[in-house]
Amino acid sequence: MSSLLNKIINNKIEEADSYNIRENGKTVKRKENEYIKIVNKPNSKGIDIYVKEDTLFGIIDIPVIISESGIKDVVYNDFHIGENANVIIVAGCGIHNIKHKTSQHDGIHRFYLSKNSKVRYVEKHYGEGTGNKIFNPITEAYLEEGSTLNIETVQIKGVDKTTRITKAELQENATLTINEKLYTEEEQYAKTDFIVNLNGENASAHVTSRSVATENSYQEFTSDVIGNTKSFAHVSCDAIIKENAQVKAIPIIYAKDASANLIHEAAIGKIAGQQLTKLMTLGLTLKEAEKMIIEGFLK
């Protein structure tokens, strides 16, 4: 279990201010402190995490591990962030499935950010073993005035099927940043949907997706950003495609107000020949050059 934990959590879990480890559908270990409280939802369906107002630099780890084959775990995690609080939440999910049954984790994360609070949310998905591994994360975020939410998601290989939905509602001066990194191979399927509503004046959203699709994998990226008032959004989707992979990017930007400024950039293409040539003139083989370019791109 601890090796899987290391794959999804970068920091040392014992050093976190609080944590909740969920394994095969049950909480197995937990730590709280006076600022961060974790309360079970009925029927072990998830947890409510309460962060007190003015909490400074709290770190919360909420890893989920599935090591038994054939488990379908649905979990609701709700984060209630007090005014002016500033926390880092690390949510990893690792599936170890060496059997033929399908293991699935559907995490539903809801973020309620009070005025001027700041959250950095890091999520990593990792799968190992030959059994089928499915993740369907849903993230909903409600950002009150002046709050900031920074979402970083990483999914590098090992996951057979993902449908990720991220929805956010932003009030005045709220800022949402999403950085997504994705690598698919074999027959993997990954679908990402971002639905962002900019409701308050000067709300802004910055969505950046970098992905690499190889072999027979399929990726689909949809972003739907609605500017209801004077607001700003920049969405960028940048994909490297190889072999028989397919990548589809569907940009929707909808300005419902003349002072909304919404930008969408999408680029899909194979690795530039000029980049490969340059690295080969430095002595790398074609394979090594490709590897370096892809690793840099997803760094």
Partner: peptide, 30 residues
Amino acid sequence: ITERANMGIGFAFQQPAVFKGITVYDLLKV
């Protein structure tokens, strides 16, 4: 190209390639 590079031939391009996520340090190490 790789074999020639490893035999000691070097080439500075008129228009240098740009990379996403590769630093000057990374490139110099290679």
